[in-house]
Design a binder for these strands. Structure first.
Length: 236
DNA sequence: CGATTTTGACCAGCGC
DNA sequence: GCGCTGGTCAAAATCG
């Protein structure tokens, strides 16, 4: 395991731990940790401009986006911050804002690097190339409101854990997003929520700017869902 | 009565 | 091939 530490002017530090099967991202709030399950995160692929973008995103998110203002300083920023595909449906709160924004940036970068890699490279296994993010959150309730409507389709006892794992899929027709919810076996005051794939629709509980289209078209989503995604090509 | 949850059965992947 | 495990299906039960 290796640890990267990053800091921004007037911001708390955050840490990225590279572990065996995933990368762990956490800020100064110990109650909120995020896990990037696709272990192809390469921070050397990030540039200074990316971190500036992230810094902008934090500011933008806490002001114009959350208050619904239309004054948007950058043509790319609104989509990055607001895109439910990039944010994967996680509703920002004061406690998860920092980590969520980091995740959004990393997801964004990872997705497009995946897209390039997909153009020919065979997948090692089923999970590769899927958009999968896990969050570990301290919570008394297991079902955290993320703005989307979910339908439960399974429940399973998990080895080495006293708590069952619950399986949900997005109720929206045609959307293939799934999530797994389970209590942490080591500390049951924490809930681990794993999201898989990306929504192909907007959150029913969020109002978006009418004039701004989704930055990532459905073609990307279809590309992601295909396990041998070398033939789909609606993405420009 | 339609939507949702429950729950046992079934299936696929993986290691041995 | 076999057994274990995680993930999904689908019929029955429950809910609103």
């Amino acid at each position: 395991m290796s640890i990267d530490q990053f800091s921004f002017p007037q911001r708390d530090n955050f840490f990225v731990n590279h572990e065996e099967n995933h990368s762990k991202v956490h800020g100064t709030n110990p109650n909120y940790t995020a896990y990037l399950m696709n272990n192809n995160l390469d921070l050397s692929d990030f540039e200074v401009s990316d971190y500036l973008l992230l810094e902008h995103g934090l500011q933008d998110e806490s002001t114009s986006t959350l208050t619904g203002s239309n004054s948007l300083p950058s043509p790319i920023l609104p989509s990055l911050v607001d895109d439910p595909v990039v944010s994967n449906g996680i509703t920002p709160t004061s406690s998860n804002m920092q980590v969520l924004t980091i995740i959004r940036l990393i997801s964004f970068k990872t997705k497009f690097s995946n897209l390039r890699k997909c153009k020919g490279a065979a997948k090692k296994n089923k999970a590769d190339g899927r958009h999968r993010i896990a969050f570990r959150t301290k919570s008394e309730v297991e079902i955290l409101d993320d703005g989307f409507k979910w339908r439960k389709y399974g429940k399973k006892a998990v080895k080495d854990s006293p708590n069952p794992r619950n399986y949900y899929r997005c109720s929206s027709v045609g959307c293939t997003v799934k999530k797994r919810v389970e209590r942490d076996g080591e500390d049951s005051s924490y809930v681990i929520t794993t999201y898989e794939n990306v929504h192909n629709h907007e959150s029913p509980s969020v109002v978006y700017y009418n004039e701004i289209p989704l930055m990532v078209p459905n073609g990307w989503t279809l590309h992601q869902q295909s396990s041998n995604a070398s033939s789909s090509s609606s993405f420009p």
